[in-house]
Design a protein around this nucleic acid. Structure first.
Lengths: 115, 115
DNA sequence: GGCACTCATCAGCACGTGCGCATATGTCGA
DNA sequence: TCGACATATGCGCACGTGCTGATGAGTGCC
């Protein structure tokens, strides 16, 4: 099997978490410390630290010490560009399918999203 | 939490499998039947069918009966565009980090890919 | 040095997922 | 209708993952 395919699957699996997507979305606006991040999105500090560790292991974010705080930032904006592209695709789809669903059509895309 | 974020996480989770990425890659060249797909990538028929069911539930592929065979195709090439974009980003990274690793530097991106 | 604070890590549990295997459903030809 | 083929589904097991709670490691202030 292709190495890049396996690597890509790992990165995708890393991103396949609403929490981590939110973290990326937050870090896209600028670097943040662990505590601020945890408080901003209402998760426990260990949980935030674990998610950040996962993102760091995947090479998506990087850490930098500043006193007793640790500031995290995005390594490469290109990954988030791909994410935003997918995001916009899904947005378009939601709008299109939402219009269809409004007149009684069911959509597989929404079965789990609207439940 | 944002609905689109959750939806995106589900789609990413659906794609976060080397097998399914290979399936997408194969379907990108054109529609395929379940048996041909299973044989082409050396997986059992039920396994291929399950992966296709997952992709179909996520609205990434769609099925069409043709006699006793079922032909699967991509619903929207845009998703694969995002995938290819991420793929090229990773390729660039691999090349860049490979050059660094050649002179002794370690990289978190490669820890799991080269093991 | 001692204390308060920030972050990382560990242990444990609940839950989901992928796989092989067996089997059900659907479709065509004789 | 019966048999052969293509696909889908259900079951069970092994494994990975996310969360909580507790603890350890690093840092700055007194």
């Amino acid at each position: 099997m292709d190495d890049i395919t396996i690597l890509q699957a790992e990165v995708l699996r890393t991103l396949a978490s609403p929490r981590r997507l939110e973290i990326l979305h937050a870090l896209a606006k600028g670097p943040l410390e662990v505590g601020h991040l945890a408080e901003a999105m209402g998760m426990s500090q260990p949980n935030a630290s674990q998610h950040l560790a996962v993102l760091r292991t995947a090479g998506i974010v990087e850490a930098e010490r500043d006193g007793r705080e640790v500031r995290y930032r995005l390594v490469d904006p290109d990954v988030t560009v791909a994410c935003d592209l997918m995001r916009s695709v899904l947005k378009r789809r939601l709008n299109r399918l939402g219009a269809i669903a409004a007149e009684g059509g069911a959509s597989p895309l929404l079965t789990s999203a609207t439940r």
